[in-house]
Write a protein that binds this DNA or RNA. Structure first.
Length: 568
RNA sequence: GGGCGUGUGGCCUAGUGGAUAUGGCGGCAGCCUCCUAAGCUGUAGGUCAGGGGUUCGAAUCCCUUCACGCCCGCCA
């Protein structure tokens, strides 16, 4: 409903500018603590036409006609600011609308099925996901959910790097070690990877054998590819299992090698040669990007005729581009330069460019993580540990409940807590993983939001138990005039805007902050406004509000990839 | 050395041109005969890394210095 209010403000303001004859280029609308929406346009208009901003603000205010608007209640001038406030109707309409639309509130539907492919995680299958990888997964998955709500037909892809050097190392190690079958498969692969690296360090000569595998696989040698898949498959099985525990799902897993066997990589090289930008450097083909602002030229094909990771990535993107209207890649900050190169080169051959969402690294207090050295905290370990803590929490808080209940709550609270801690922080901020903080359930994180939802459900459950409130249709939301009722409704009305902003800016942390504020508003309402003991009409109106809050919290949680428990 | 990014109370963090800088954690002081206290209320705590500039107005833009991270492979 906030978006509709904003539209009305834009329209009346535009008209007022026309009437007063001010040339506007920018309405300068901003959310403000002093109003529901405000504009500081008078400052700029004042500078442009030599009048005082204050008098301009008054003039514009006087020209504003609210005849056609029902969501704007009043307009006030405060110095040079013009402040807009929502109307009475805004509140009742919001509650009614959420009641009518249910879980579709805040969803844009029927946009013609424009398709976006979100690529995320795409971690090398040489070990389990660690706490750095899952920042990628969680950002990507949350974005996918947000864009789905924004009306996009979203497909999520995992690009499987099944022919990298790391994979070759493990494939080579298969000739020397047994896979430890007592471990989860991806952990067993990592273990083998580490042992192989030790062996290679001790005897540098052995690299020759690994390099031979690399050469053969880059030439598309089916036999070696099969050997590689003995590594990739168990690793991917383990990774998929971890992702599932995080409530993350991919639609398509596409392997890097498929672009070699299909010949697509070589077509890319040929097409680029035709652009006249490719030069031969010591037998290798490279693309010069100096005039496009990048000193470092991009190597497409080695002297020996094989291609590189980036070349295959180009082929992958061309293939992807043909299937969608928009591409988004979620990548770690180490890919900043490469992804810029990728975008430029794609443009050279007329392929649309992906939007790249870059996130900064997650490190450990003692330094950066390394699968090779075995220095990392795996996502599985974190999930197990947090579930253990969640189980302790639920056991002390709800000692009377069944073991199954405790188990289920611990699982959904645990994974949500992990997701929230990661998604709440802006992607361009480096993070240091901290066990104490990760396992802290007291702070305002996911459990706080889930708890608000459970509280709402609890009230509704009791009301239903009283045998009355199944028809909230007859409730009168205009009775909801209390301060904290109003604040809560305003927050609920903002949900579609929060989702829209997060989607437009590709910044999922915006939604995380919103979720926390929404839960806070509900908790304040919960404190101030007794529902079940209220007088009959008010009771029914408040039940309708609680129901709308429950819906809004559930939508928000779902979009963040977190379960909304009815009880916890 | 060059490029990109980050720097906000003890710790973490929101805010990238607008009104007294947002929250959390931790601290201190309170609130359960009442819908789940995984909750609520109050309070202390700030040279928005330093300096200079632009602007009616700067955490936000420009210049500069410093600190930290990532990148600068015919690796992936």
């Amino acid at each position: 409903m906030f978006i509709q209010f904003e539209d009305e403000v834009k329209s009346v303001l535009k008209r007022a500018f026309e009437i007063t004859g001010f040339r506007f280029s920018d309405l300068s609308l901003e959310e403000s603590e002093h109003a529901d929406l405000a504009t500081s346009a008078a400052f700029r208009l004042g500078a442009a036409c030599g009048k005082s901003p204050i008098s301009i603000a008054r003039e514009v205010r006087d020209a504003i006609r609210l005849d056609d608007s029902e969501l704007i209640g009043r307009v006030e001038v405060a110095g040079p600011y013009i402040n807009f406030f929502v109307s009475e109707k805004y509140f009742s309409r919001t509650v009614e609308r959420i009641h009518a639309e249910g879980v579709d509130f805040g969803s844009v539907t029927g946009t013609g099925g424009k398709k976006v492919i979100v690529e995320h995680t795409s971690a090398n299958p040489n070990g389990p996901l660690h706490v750095g990888h899952i920042r990628n997964s969680i950002i990507g998955d949350t974005l996918a959910r947000i864009l789905r709500r924004c009306g996009w037909d979203v497909e999520v892809q995992y690009y499987v790097n099944d022919m990298g050097r790391q994979i070759a190392v493990v494939a080579w190690a298969f000739e020397h070690f047994e896979l430890d079958s007592s471990m989860k498969s991806d952990h067993a692969i990592a273990d083998m990877y580490q042992r192989a690296n030790q062996l290679l360090e001790e005897d540098e000569e052995r690299w020759k054998e690994v390099n031979e595998l690399m050469q053969r696989v880059e030439g598309g040698d089916e036999l070696v590819l099969k050997q590689f898949s003995r590594v990739v498959e168990p690793a991917m099985d383990g990774i998929r299992e971890t992702l599932k525990r995080l409530n993350i799902d991919h639609d398509v897993f596409i392997s890097e090698s498929s672009f070699v066997t299909s010949g697509d990589v070589f077509k890319i090289v040929e097409d680029l040669k035709r652009t006249g930008r490719v030069r031969v450097d010591d037998g290798a083909f490279v693309v010069d990007l100096k005039d496009l602002g990048i000193e470092k030229s991009l190597v497409l094909q080695r002297r020996d005729g094989t291609t590189l990771y980036t070349t295959r990535d180009l082929a992958y993107h061309r293939w992807k581009a043909e299937q969608c209207d928009w591409m988004i890649d979620v990548l770690g900050s180490d890919h900043k330069l490469v992804s810029r190169q990728l975008r430029l080169v794609l443009d050279l051959i007329g392929v649309k460019q992906p939007d790249i969402v870059i996130f900064e690294f997650v490190s450990l207090p003692e330094g950066s993580m390394s699968t090779r050295k075995g220095v990392f905290i795996s996502a599985d370990e974190l999930l197990d540990e947090i579930k253990k803590h969640a189980l302790e929490e639920v056991s002390t808080r709800r000692p009377d409940t069944s073991p199954e209940f405790k188990e289920r709550v611990a699982e959904i609270v645990g994974r949500a807590a992990i997701r929230y801690d990661i998604i709440k922080v802006s992607a361009d901020k480096a993070m240091v993983f901290n066990w104490r903080e990760a396992l802290d359930f007291e702070k305002q994180g996911a459990p706080f939001i889930q708890y608000a939802h459970a509280r709402a459900c609890s009230i509704l459950r009791r009301a239903r138990g009283d045998g009355e409130e199944d028809d909230l249709g007859s409730a009168d939301p205009t009775l909801l005039t209390g301060e904290s009722e109003r604040e809560l409704i305003k927050k609920m009305a903002y949900l579609p805007k929060a989702i829209e902003r997060a989607g437009q800016d590709l910044k999922p942390h915006i939604l995380a902050a919103y979720a926390r504020e929404l839960a806070e508003s509900f908790n304040q309402f919960y404190r101030d406004s007794p529902v079940l003991n209220a007088e009959e009409d008010l009771r029914r109106a408040r039940l309708m509000l609680v129901d709308a809050a429950r819906t809004t919290l559930a939508i928000t949680l779902e979009t963040l990839g977190m379960e909304a428990p009815e009880e916890m």
